[in-house]
Design a protein around this nucleic acid. Sequence first.
RNA 1: CGGGGCGUAGCGUAGCCCGGUUAUCGCGCCUGGUUUGGGACCAGGAGGUCGCAAGUUCGAAUCUUGCCGCCCCGACCA
Length: 490
Amino acid sequence: MAKELTTRQEDYSQWYNDLVIKGGLADYSAVRGCMVIKPYGFALWEKMRDQLDKMFKDTGHVNAYFPLFIPKSFLSKEAAHVEGFAKECAVVTHYRLMNDPNGKGIIVDPDAKLEEELIVRPTSETIIWHTYRDWIQSYRDLPLLINQWANVVRWEMRTRLFLRTAEFLWQEGHTAHATKEEAIEETERMLGVYADFVETYMAVPVIRGVKTPNERFAGAEDTYCIEALMQDGKALQAGTSHFLGQNFAKAFDVQFLTKENKQEYVWATSWGVSTRLIGALIMAHSDDNGLVMPPKIAPLQAVIVPIYKGEDSKPVIDAKAKEILNQLKAAGVSVKYDESDNRPGWKFAEHELKGVPVRIALGLRDIENGVVEIARRDTKEKNSVPVDGIADTVVRLLDEIQQNMFDKALAFRTSHTTEANSWDEFVKLLDEKGGFIAAHWDGTPETEDAIKEKTKATIRCIPLNNKKEAGTCILTGKPSQERVLFARAY
RNA sequence: CGGGGCGUAGCGUAGCCCGGUUAUCGCGCCUGGUUUGGGACCAGGAGGUCGCAAGUUCGAAUCUUGCCGCCCCGACCA
């Protein structure tokens, strides 16, 4: 029986949920707002994580691990930071349970109250900067370039699988530098790493930019971001990199001695991407038949499906299939021979649903002709190709799929990035077309809020290397020096 | 937290208004067989605290009250 998928046109949100659930990436859990990441979804995350981890190490970072719990008092040391996160913190108040003296069940032991309550980290700046204070004394200790892979908890009111869950997995880089320039350079470097990763591996084109003060990370001087566009025309922030100035250094008193023997506060950055990237991947590429995985991070790049014809055909087909399997493996392709006793049509649909980039089907007819049927997930094209040189063919095809997926997503973004020069035009574009809208803005938070209030669109970013262009704000008509990118966003 | 909707097998559901044999059907699952080029077919089988609790009644999935949970829309957000 077919697993019926809602189409994008029918209900985009439901389509997304169907893909996550039926594609085997994740399940809802017994805990509100928290999901179970299933093996296929976790395999995808592992591919992302491993690649990113390599890129972090290549840029000089090392991994460490800091506690899940943060003393409540730490959070209040940086004013903007506490302001930003206080509303969504889970708090640990007790450390013991006991049997309910009034009957069955178990209750919190009232005698086991913590002297200082603990926050479950919504992000780790405070605990990390508290620690850095002990680690940094001299300019020789800098730069300190540390990353951690962790889970964090933000008590969101409304959650969506991968896009916004109460608990999620991410990495957070936290670096300390001797100079402002160096810290800004680091912030930009890591934004570049993210952009490179998302474009090269996930095949999702991104806009690099800077957030306006309204959208800035709580406690940052500047928040850089990469913004991606989803197929429904909504933007999604795929990663952020923050220049924290000396805010946390001052809040946690982290100073170092310069070469000139002067005490100075260090300069900081932090940067992160999360399992939300999986949501971005799904909404950027997938179609009404299921997930579409870019080859470079697909948990499985190719699958071989046998088409039996009578009992006698099995050994012949199995032998040939395993030959092909070994050739592909030798060429570095992650590939599986699907010997399960489902029928071919069932397997085709299943692997399509899961987004496996390349499918190879093999029956007696093919063996006689020295060919296999090869189908690519991105375009759904099928072709007979010679068995000879199959590994090269597949490797080339995987590259082609990767490129095609990026090109397609880029073409979509290009065609959905529009300039608006008047309020009416702006509103019409938002409602009828969506996507990024490049428009003039007078630079004030009040105007940004007013636009958000009226249209639900926010300024996604001010693109880096944005061209200067005199104009007037679409809402207030006040003068503006450059266009910024608006969109409705996830 | 406000507005709307829903809880019956792993999933989707009928039955509820108008109480009455053994709770319906499909998918999935198990066994055996036949099959296999786009989600197979036949035969047999397993699987249920009808969200929870109390009440009304000879009798409750069905009526009443309370509670719990989930989903959608809004305020908050990576």
